[in-house]
């Protein structure tokens, strides 16, 4: 194990880790937004919207995220979408994560007993009020943990943007493996940084989960 080399290159890894963090945060925000919209569409009264929601989930979960990324980044210009690699990464991964989150959010909503909605409606609450005041607060408790799993997967999925040359952790590791021929050391450096990011996020989610369980 070449510790000297590791010590020498670790600042570059640290820098790359910030890109991974930034990517993760932006992707998570976009993913949650898409997930909420997707779930709303899946549970809509309108058959057309339900179909759109189901198709979104099926297509984006049924094909590799890497291909989705390539379509957006390499194929985008052909249909007038010009994005740099970082933008394409956030948008591609965000929409992909959103498909998984749609199912998580939808699952948490339909897990709430039908009687809750009926009780709210008999009290005179509107459809929207029943959802917003009665159903969502209850399903929020069920959502945090599985959304945490989605976010954990999303952080690891940010590595895919290495394939479109975004200089994040995996790309950096790959480059230094190529130039130093020390795959194990470079893996360990990047791996530890990923573990730290995932650990911190995991703690945050556990904290949030406790918080929503109390209320």
């Amino acid at each position: 194990m070449d510790f000297e080399l590791m010590l020498k290159v670790y600042p570059f890894f640290l820098e790359a880790a910030w890109i991974t963090v930034l990517l993760s945060i932006l992707t998570a925000i976009l993913g949650l937004t898409c997930g909420a919209l997707g779930a709303a569409a899946r549970l809509s009264r309108f058959a057309g919207l339900r179909f759109v929601g189901a198709a979104y989930v099926s297509v984006f979960r049924g094909t590799p995220a890497l291909i989705q990324l390539f379509i957006l980044y390499f194929g985008g210009p052909q249909i007038g979408i010009q994005l740099d690699a970082f933008e394409a990464g956030v948008i591609g991964l965000g929409i992909n994560a959103g498909a998984y989150m749609t199912e998580t959010i939808r699952g948490a909503i339909i897990a709430i007993d039908k009687g809750q909605r009926e009780a709210a409606r008999t009290l005179g609450l509107s459809q929207w009020q029943a959802m917003y005041r009665i159903i969502l607060p209850q399903s929020a408790r069920l959502m945090v943990r599985p959304l945490g799993v989605n976010i954990n997967a999303l952080i690891k999925a940010t590595a895919l943007v290495a394939a479109i040359s975004v200089v994040e952790l995996t790309y950096t590791a790959q480059r230094y493996i190529g130039s130093t021929y020390k795959p194990f050391e470079m893996f360990l450096l990047a791996g530890v940084l990923y573990m730290i990011i995932i650990y911190v996020v995991g703690r945050g989610i556990a904290w949030l989960d406790r918080k929503v369980q109390i209320t």
Binding site: K156, K182, P183, F187, A190, G191, Y194, M195
Partner: peptide, 21 residues
């Protein structure tokens, strides 16, 4: 635990180049 917490792509690089190594 390390394999669950890191991206598959990174692991593929490790295995591919590590085996050569």
């Amino acid at each position: 635990w390390l394999f669950m917490g890191t991206p598959l792509l990174l692991q593929l690089f490790l295995i591919y180049f590590g085996l050569v190594q």
